[in-house]
Structures are given as structure tokens and as C-alpha cells.
Amino acid sequence: MKAGLRAVLPVLALLAACSPERKGDDLVFVSDEEANVVHVIDGASGAKEGDLVTGARPRGLALSPDGRTLYVAASNANRIEAWDVAGRHRLHVYDSGSDPERFAVSPDGHTLYIANEDHSAVSFLDLASGRITREVKVGPEPEGMGVSPDGRLVIATSEAASTAHFIDAATGRLIDSIIVGSRPRDALFVGGKLWVSSEQRGTISIIDPVSRRIASVIDLVAAFPDLDSAQAVELKATRDGKRAFVAMGRGNQVAEIDPASFRIVRSFPTGTRNWGIALSPDDGRLYAASGLSGDVTIIDLKANRVLRRVTFKGRPWGVVAARR
């Protein structure tokens, strides 16, 4: 090796070590119900990129189908805010009905279905007009919201009644209500089935949406006997439907479930009280927001390992990831 090259190599190595980690292709938005902001971080490095100042107590988050608009439920302000993902500025403020928490976006992007927790109702918000077109009465303390891939069926979970409600999206008619595990939190369609998580019971009910009968139950308490508290909160699945994940609340983990067999494949450690989870747009990373430890865990789903944790001063609640 030439003397000049030997001199240059240590310098190059030092520069590589000191250079910042490459940014990811996605931005991660984290609602903080205590700080009244949505934190923005880089999906790969976890580097903090700023805050969106929102109405009081931001909780539920969702993206428009094209990924360009972020919707935020400001629970104590009784509104839904629309933010431009690329420019990070607020586009619109919508009257959401009383105490919005979680909500779902229709597949065509025209309607938000909003759980009004202290009003025992689901509001249909038409985004074009900015008006609530109908209000559907459901059980007490509705929280989880889901919508079928074809947009025809809306699901609301009632925490206090341990019930999943089936609503016709076109008419707002309440079709059926079935009993699930205690304090249901989230509803997600995976592979033609409806999954409903139960925080207190620590189960996921797998429901046939046609017959509206429970076909199977995944029991996290039985699967994790060494945990003091195995809960089931937010649900997410990869776009190909081959991997599913559940935030385990005070179990302080995210469990991965095989949707074909309903078998628990593995789990990843998170911060304390993991409430919200999200997948990166390419399904390569998972983000877990933990309120009591005030952090977000970034998990590499290709290597199946925790990459890092990003700590905030408040109480992270929800999380979504969008392309830059």
C-alpha cells in the first residue's frame, strides 16, 4: 500500500464515524397528549425534526389514502386537524363532535369515521364539505374504529360494553353488535377477517364479517405467562397481510402474529405502556409509542431487532409513518 493511501484511510474512517446516519424514506408522526404537539422524527435514524402544535390532547392519527395529509384527533378541542405531510403546515380544522379519540379514513378518502368517546356515538365527517353528515349511536365509550377494504362496513368498539358494532357505511344503519373481550381497543381487517383487540382481557377476537361470529381467539395472557400484564391495544398488518402486530400496553412489548395460523411468532421489547404502533411505508420498520416512559421504539422488521428508542418529555399516544 502506498504511503499516501495509508495516510488517507484513517481520515476517511474518522469522517464516516462522525457523519450523521442517513435519513430514512419516511417521516414518523407521534401524537403527544400531554405536550399538545405531534412530534416529527426521521424513520430510520430517529432524529427529531420538529413538532406540529395542535389542539389540546392530540391522540388518534391517520393518513389520507395518498399519504399526503395527516389527520389528528385533538380530543379536548373537539376537532380533527388536517396537516400537509410535506410542508408540515395545518390545512384545515374540522368540527368532529364531542371528544374524538380514534377514527378511520374511508378507502376513497372522502369520509372520516370518528369515535366520540363521551357521547356514545360515531360521527361521519364529510371532508369535502367539512360537515358531519350523520351520527350513529353505539355503546358507551366507543374507541376503536375500522373500515372494511371495500368501504362498505364501519366497525366501532365500545369499551364499557365490550362490544363490536357493525355499521353500514352507506346508510349509517347499525347492522349488528357482538360481545368481544373486555375493553376492546382497536378493529382491523386482516385477510378477510376482522380482528378486535381487548385491552383488559388481553385477547384478539377473530371475527367473520359476513356471519358476524367469532371464529377464533388469540390469547396473549396464555402466550405470555411471565408478564404481569399482557394487554392488547393497537393492531397493524403489513400490506401483503403476511405479518400482523399488536401493541401490548402495560405488557411493554409488541407481539407479532402469523395471520395464517394465528400463532404468536415473536415479541419485541418497548417502553412502558405501549399504546400505539405503526409500520413504515415499505413495511421494513415498526414504530411503537409508549406513554409512561415517553418514548418511541424503532424496530427493524427485516433483521427482527430493536434499533433504538427516541425519548420525549410528554406522553406519546399514537403514531403513523408517511413517505417524505
Score class of each variant (00 low, 15 high):
K2C: 12
A3T: 13
G4I: 14
R6D: 15
V8R: 05
V8I: 15
L12G: 08
L12A: 13
A13P: 00
A17T: 03
P20C: 13
R22C: 07
G24L: 07
D25F: 07
D25P: 00
D26C: 14
L27E: 06
V28W: 14
D32V: 09
A35L: 11
H39S: 06
D42V: 04
G46D: 07
K48I: 01
D51E: 15
T54N: 08
P58W: 02
S64P: 02
D66L: 05
D66M: 04
G67Y: 06
Y71S: 09
A73I: 08
S75M: 15
N78H: 13
R79L: 14
W83T: 04
S98W: 00
R102M: 14
F103D: 01
V105T: 14
P107V: 08
H110K: 13
Y113C: 07
I114P: 12
H119D: 12
L125W: 00
A128Y: 00
A128M: 01
S129A: 06
I132K: 03
I132S: 04
R134A: 15
V138W: 02
G139A: 11
P140Q: 09
P140A: 11
P140R: 15
L153F: 08
I155S: 04
I155H: 11
S162L: 02
A164L: 07
A164T: 14
H165W: 14
A170D: 11
A170E: 05
G172K: 01
L174S: 04
L174N: 01
I175Q: 13
D176P: 03
G181P: 01
S182D: 10
R183S: 07
R185L: 00
R185H: 05
F189D: 04
V190G: 02
G191V: 03
K193D: 07
S197L: 01
E199T: 11
R201T: 08
D208V: 13
V210M: 06
R212Q: 15
S216A: 15
V217T: 15
V217S: 05
V217P: 10
A223R: 08
L227R: 03
L227M: 03
D228K: 14
D228W: 04
A230E: 08
A232D: 06
A232F: 00
V233K: 02
K236N: 01
D240Q: 03
G251T: 01
Q253N: 10
A255G: 08
A260F: 06
S261P: 00
F262I: 00
R266A: 12
S267W: 10
T270I: 03
G271T: 04
W275P: 00
I277L: 11
L279N: 10
Y287F: 10
A288V: 09
A288C: 06
A289L: 03
S293C: 03
I299R: 12
V306D: 11
V306K: 13
L307A: 11
K313D: 15
P316E: 07
V319M: 07
R323I: 07
R324N: 12
